[in-house]
Design a protein around this nucleic acid. Structure first.
Lengths: 144, 144
DNA sequence: ATTATTCCCTAGTTTATTACTAGGGATTTA
DNA sequence: TAAATCCCTAGTAATAAACTAGGGAATAAT
């Protein structure tokens, strides 16, 4: 029952872009350093996020990445779905499943995984990047 | 974001044992046939479940497996934890984590996965094998 | 113009895991 | 004693994860 690092790293990157959200693009190198991630690897992840329309890129010197929408309008679910594929603990509970499982319609254990999927989706879709930034601020307050 | 087949197959087997729960043990061969699983593979899974105390085994002819407790007292969470390890979308949100992540205490994305973990746990712990049997019966009723 | 910066793309690599298969031994009932 | 059954270990093929490496294309600053 595991996530890959893709979702985790990708979310960290998006969170970083949200924390520093402005009109100026942020170079990936900066993000990678701040979040301590491999830049080359992160490149691959953010490419997927760009193709999905969650970030915009600006090429050339002084270039970088910016969120395509304000942090309030991007949820963790959006990010995770791009990087990890559809949320589905098992293939056959994916919304996109076109399968050949002969027990499809009366598989009881399948119903269990469908419930799990729904609860994961609910959580991920209920948290925006802005929520994460807010939480970070609160934690910072408590420290002082 | 995937489960392995272990959890799925193992749950199917436990569900099968629950459906046919009585004083007599059920040979694994029967379970494997009914649930269409590889017997050899299932052996490995049920060995883990036995060591965890969820099923009892009876050796020799007329032997087989029986649930160690009535279906009401075994949850899906019990089964899944044995086969998939602790419920944790990421290592560092496992209860058992003894780690070296330097951002441990202020990693915001980690908090997200902790929420996911809790919601998965809630779902899995709220469903017993008996619940699954009941659901199967209801579906069967609707069909008639 | 040129150089430095940055995004962009693809291919290769290492390691681990998954999902088995295979086969033999131990135990018990008929 | 034979058949049924659990029990255990080792091997294996395929896949995916998590990168590394390196070069090309676009743009801004000089």
């Amino acid at each position: 029952m595991k996530l890959s690092t893709k979702g985790h790293y990708g979310l960290k990157a998006m969170y970083d872009l949200a924390l520093h959200y402005s009109n100026d693009p942020i170079p990936l190198k900066t993000v990678a350093e701040r979040q301590r991630l491999s830049e080359n690897y992160l490149e691959q992840l953010i490419a997927a996020l760009r193709k999905a329309g969650l970030v915009r890129s600006v090429r050339g010197a002084q270039g970088g990445y910016i969120l395509a929408k304000p942090p309030e309008e991007i949820t963790v679910g959006d990010v995770v779905r791009v990087l990890e594929g559809p949320i589905a603990p098992l293939e056959c509970v994916s919304e996109e499943y076109i399968g050949d499982c002969d027990q499809f319609n009366y598989c009881i254990s399948r119903n269990v995984w469908a419930k799990v999927r729904d609860s994961i989706s609910d959580v991920l879709d209920s948290i925006s990047l802005a929520d994460m930034c807010r939480e970070a601020k609160e934690i910072d307050q408590l420290r002082k």
